[in-house]
Design a protein around this nucleic acid. Structure first.
Lengths: 185, 185
DNA sequence: CTTGCCTATGCAACAAGTTGCATAGAAAGA
DNA sequence: TCTTTCTATGCAACTTGTTGCATAGGCAAG
């Protein structure tokens, strides 16, 4: 439903190829929207067919040629329309929470390692977000002129940072709980 | 992938029909996993075929008959196996964040109402979670014997509460940012 | 007394997302 | 030199998830 719109936003921020989009979906956009390169290539085809984006073939010497996409006026209008429609609350799919409740029917202590693994991964993400914030927003090399786009990117990043911090605190709570329950069953 | 496992956990906590499961996915389980009744009925069929669950036809007088499902030893083993496998970090799909970044290419101020609407919805959810916590865990009518299942349900609920509080604080941040940017473009 | 809601299950068609594979040249490391 | 990694695009098959509809009796409100 909204992958198209995430791609429109990303291409408006900076035109690029499907491959480049896929990498952005592993980084900045990927903080709040995931997509594989397969999805992206397929959706780009459809968007091109709908006239939302234009392609330019970019021959490259040392690398395979790429197709650079940019948003058309029609695509911009489609994004604008979507922005004015109300959307559903984000829906969650939190495997770890299912596992935690499921641990009551198995060995709670066996989950400790898994939770620690997630804790580490979220710590890494937080570090990565904070480094990006310093580099792009709060550090000495970054600021200059404050424009709306930058401000909005920053507030979204602050959301990611808040999410990671909240998650880490919760995982600590989970670990304390699992350890208190012990290896019993 | 994990809908089966969420259903196993829910049926282990309490056997029930597809319809009842669908309602639980609007409440307790639904805090961290969403599913429609269509998905649930389809998956229940498959799980029954795989021998993970048993059915009992329950004739009812004033209501349509229902099928009550309960987990078999095989289903329990399948859950146990899944619990011991590592899982991916949860992936996010946060439409609102896409919209916020997209607002840079439209009118940021036009998003204020939408964000306020989400703020209200998350406030309602938080209130609902807190009421459930009081009723089932922290209030005077609840405690009695502390068992592992209850403890684990509680720590998951605390996660939901922390998530809602973090989200509300972030949405406040978003609103301040949008108002500062004003109706400009 | 009729309209709409609640319980209860389900099919069919469609849209979205995942997984595995394929191609292909350049660069970098073992 | 051989293997791996990176850039770059894509098909085909499969699994999930969504939407619309259908049935059907009981109950409550207007």
């Amino acid at each position: 439903m909204a992958l198209e719109h995430a791609i429109l936003v990303s291409l408006l921020e900076k035109p690029g190829s499907g491959y480049e989009l896929a990498r952005r979906f592993d980084r900045s956009i990927g903080y709040f929207w995931t997509a594989t390169h397969q999805q992206i290539y397929r959706v780009l085809k459809r968007m091109e067919g709908d006239g939302w984006i234009d392609v330019r073939e970019m021959p490259q010497q040392t690398r395979p040629d790429k197709k650079e996409y940019s948003v058309t006026a029609l695509g911009r209008a489609a994004l604008s329309q979507w922005l004015h429609e109300p959307i559903e609350l984000e829906s969650v799919r939190h495997d770890l929470a299912v596992k935690i409740r499921g641990a009551a029917f198995d060995d709670p202590a066996a989950l400790i390692r898994e939770v620690e693994r997630h804790h580490q991964a979220h710590t890494d993400r937080l570090t990565h977000y904070l480094a990006g914030e310093w580099r792009d927003f709060t550090g000495p090399g970054a600021p200059g002129t404050p424009d709306a786009g930058r401000e909005l990117q920053h507030v979204v990043l602050r959301g990611g940072i808040a999410y990671e911090r909240m998650t880490l605190a919760w995982l600590d709570d989970v670990l304390v709980t699992l350890r208190r329950l012990g290896p019993a069953r």
